[in-house]
């Protein structure tokens, strides 16, 4: 009995000892030695892939966010322009247009810009006091419209034309469409980059898994001969790649977040550009989205390795 207990203890210590080497493993040593999956270089490449994936994802989110801010600002605003042969024509037109606007459901606010304001905008180019002498500047009325009105402007357009012949309505549709399509192409580009990075992670994983199998040919052969299934070996390789992938992915994520924070600080230090450049600040929801990039990288790496192993082994006896 004491003999049996002693051997039991021995067995336990033999089993526990190597567990310290494998971070995520308990019991015995990993079936494939560390060098098998080209540890450090693979981790480094996965880190770079994960870094790029996070940046692509961040670009996607930033473009998305900025585009929706720009377009929603544009969408709620429409402009009525009143032209006329004389200042009097114009001010009559403005009055008529304001009456129509104030009488229309869905107009939340209508502000006529004074001629002075308009002139002030042009003075830097034409010189002080010269503006009125040169031009009869059209008057501008800025209108905040409800979404319902925004979607159906034809009636308002007709009523304005009837009340004030010099008035025309600009719903910024052209700008809106252009911004929206620019945003869409930006998003498509970022998503394309993201997919490319995933593809590259895939290719690297195939390459590394094949190299690992070749380097561990003897071990794989012995595993088969003692009765291991392909699935068992593939799971072992997948676990190895998952750990390497996770390590690399976290390094890449940390580097990418640092880069984004630095870029955000640089933009804010730039000050005046606030209204023009997209907002680079990271909201909590945005970080959550960004974390999906390294997770995807890691899963792609591990699953690809598994499939590669299964495919390679299926060709053996």
């Amino acid at each position: 009995m004491t003999q049996a207990e002693e051997t039991k203890k021995r067995g336990k210590s033999a089993g526990d000892k190597p567990a310290r080497r494998g971070l995520f493993r308990r019991g015995t040593a990993p079936l494939l030695p560390e060098a098998g999956a080209a540890g450090a270089p693979l981790t480094a490449v996965i880190a770079v892939m994960s870094f790029l994936a996070v940046l692509a994802m961040a670009t996607l989110l930033i473009v998305n966010h900025a585009a929706s801010e720009w377009t929603s600002a544009l969408r709620s605003e429409i402009t009525v322009q009143v032209k006329g042969a004389s200042a009097e024509d114009i001010s009559n037109g403005v009055e008529a247009a304001m009456r129509v606007l104030n009488d229309t459901d869905g107009v939340l606010e209508a502000t006529a810009q004074s001629q002075k304001d308009s002139a002030a905008l042009l003075e830097p180019w034409l010189g002080e006091g010269n503006v009125e002498a040169f031009l009869t500047i059209p008057a501008i009325i800025e209108v905040k419209a409800s979404p319902a009105l925004r979607d159906n402007l034809d009636l308002l357009r007709n009523r304005l034309a009837a009340a004030a012949p010099g008035a025309s309505l600009d719903d910024h549709a052209r700008w809106h469409d252009r911004l929206a399509s620019a945003a869409r192409s930006g998003q498509a580009l970022a998503f394309g980059v993201f997919l490319l990075v995933m593809g590259a992670a895939c290719a690297i994983s195939i390459f590394a898994a094949r190299a690992g199998l070749a380097a561990n040919h003897e071990i794989v052969s012995v595993l088969h001969l003692v009765g291991a299934t392909d699935a068992f070996i593939a799971a072992e390789v997948q676990r190895r790649f998952f750990i390497l992938g996770l390590r690399g992915a976290l390094i890449g994520l940390a580097a990418a977040l640092a880069a984004l924070v630095l870029a955000g600080l640089a933009v804010r230090a730039g000050g005046g550009a606030d209204n023009f450049l997209p907002d680079l600040r990271l909201g909590g929801w945005m970080v959550l989205w960004l974390v999906t990039a390294p997770i995807a990288t890691c899963l792609v790496t591990a699953l690809t390795a598994r499939l590669t192993v299964l495919n390679t082994l299926s060709k053996q006896y």
Binding site: A14, G15, V226, A228
Partner: peptide, 24 residues
């Protein structure tokens, strides 16, 4: 890369047997 113990235990491990059942 395996110890003598781990080498001997390999067929059991590969067959998915719990270590408690083959350690002795």
């Amino acid at each position: 890369h395996f110890t003598a113990y781990e080498n001997v235990a390999l067929p059991m491990k590969v067959a998915g047997v719990n270590q408690n059942q083959y350690r002795e």
